[in-house]
């Protein structure tokens, strides 16, 4: 009898231990919608995340080993770049669009300003291959990683063998990107009942809900859709947005609605980085738009905002800054991976 009780106890302890062990790494913030990424096909593990983080910061992904993902997606600027309207790549080449800020990607089903990337796993392929970004191809990247001193061991730690292939490479980068969750701004603490807006921020929040929330929908601050916000086409870039992908005239001039989280640090704004300041963005929305058939219906009439109201709205937008995200050491350059071993640490 005692033996049986002992056995049952052992079973319970084992089950409990396994439950404890399988505690998910990815935890969606409370009251957020369900995420879209299928974690069953790529379950997060600390070693795979670390591998992905190393790859994200390593210029080995580019043709001449000079440009990494972080070159255009720097943590301190909400994983986008500043100072440049358009992304730039190997040999100082200039791309066609402003780099997007990276955060809360598990909720997205398509990527890039025009949605040309259909899955987070495949996102990295686009800049790796683009002649004005990394100018490399994934087959070469895999070969370079196989011959490096660092990566066979990192892949071994992550996958229990040191096989390096395209699937593992891409899934590892996804692992790191999936951990980039921004949900600790002042706005978030107010929503959780742990903080309070100033009266100016509160007025700005009401203006936001009245004017902006349809497209920049809470809590992600994007409806994940493609919209035409009435920007006049740049005659040099001639960028028609989603039309390029779908060839559907109804998609002309439509671009993915970007998140407003960390907007304070993610300037310049818009797909071609034409606005450097939030005030320029607001001025765009209060001005008359040309009547193009694909213009978002919410923008058919310009917003009516007094200069005081613009200041209030800006004050609210600044509550979306998430310092915890911008300075989280687990997202930063993995010094321990690149230098720890060389120093014998």
């Amino acid at each position: 009898m005692k033996k049986r009780i002992f056995f049952i106890l052992l079973v319970f302890i084992t089950i409990f231990a396994f439950r404890f062990r399988s505690e998910p790494i990815f935890v969606a913030p409370k009251n957020w919608p369900k995420s879209s990424y299928d974690f069953k096909k790529n379950p997060l593990t600390p070693n795979k995340i670390l591998l992905g983080r190393a790859l994200f910061y390593d210029p080995i992904l580019s043709k001449n080993n000079t440009i990494s993902c972080a070159s255009c997606h720097s943590q301190y600027t909400a994983f986008t770049h500043v100072d440049h309207a358009l992304s730039h790549g190997i040999g100082d080449s200039i791309g066609m669009r402003n780099s997007l800020a990276l955060m809360n990607l598990a909720w997205h089903t398509n990527f890039m300003w025009d949605g040309s990337v259909n899955h987070l796993d495949m996102q990295a392929l686009a800049p790796i291959n683009h002649p004005s970004e990394m100018g490399e191809n994934i087959k070469n990247v895999v070969a370079k990683l196989q011959h490096s001193h660092l990566y066979p061991a990192l892949f071994y730690q992550a996958f229990n063998d040191s096989v390096i292939n395209g699937e593992r490479l891409l899934k590892s980068i996804s692992q790191f990107m999936l951990t980039l969750i921004s949900s600790n701004s002042k706005y978030d603490s107010v929503m959780r009942g742990k903080g309070k807006f100033t009266s100016q921020e509160e007025r700005g929040y009401l203006l936001f809900k009245k004017n902006c929330n349809t497209c920049h929908t809470e809590p992600l601050f994007t409806n994940l859709q493609f919209e035409n916000n009435g920007l006049i086409v740049d005659p040099f870039l001639k960028d028609y947005g989603r039309f390029r992908v779908s060839q559907n005239p109804q998609d002309s001039f439509k671009f993915k609605v970007p998140t407003l989280r960390n907007i304070e640090f993610s300037y310049p704004y818009m797909h071609d980085g034409r606005f450097k300041k939030i005030s320029e963005v607001l001025n765009h929305y209060v001005s008359q738009k040309s009547k193009v058939s694909t213009l978002a219906k919410e923008l058919s009439e310009p917003f009516v905002l007094s200069s005081n109201e613009k200041v209030d709205l800006t004050a609210f937008l600044l509550t979306l800054t998430d310092k915890h995200f911008l300075f989280n050491p687990s997202y930063s350059y993995p010094r321990e991976v690149f230098f720890g071993r060389a120093n014998g640490k």
């Binding site: 299928d38 259909n118 899955h119 796993d121 392929l125 686009a126 994934i138 292939n165 891409l170």
Partner: peptide, 24 residues
Amino acid sequence: TNVSGALGGDLDPTKGMYWTWQNG
């Protein structure tokens, strides 16, 4: 399968049969 993320074997994107600028 085209929208199922990174896949291995013959479907590995290193095989040169995958569009990167517009996925598929």
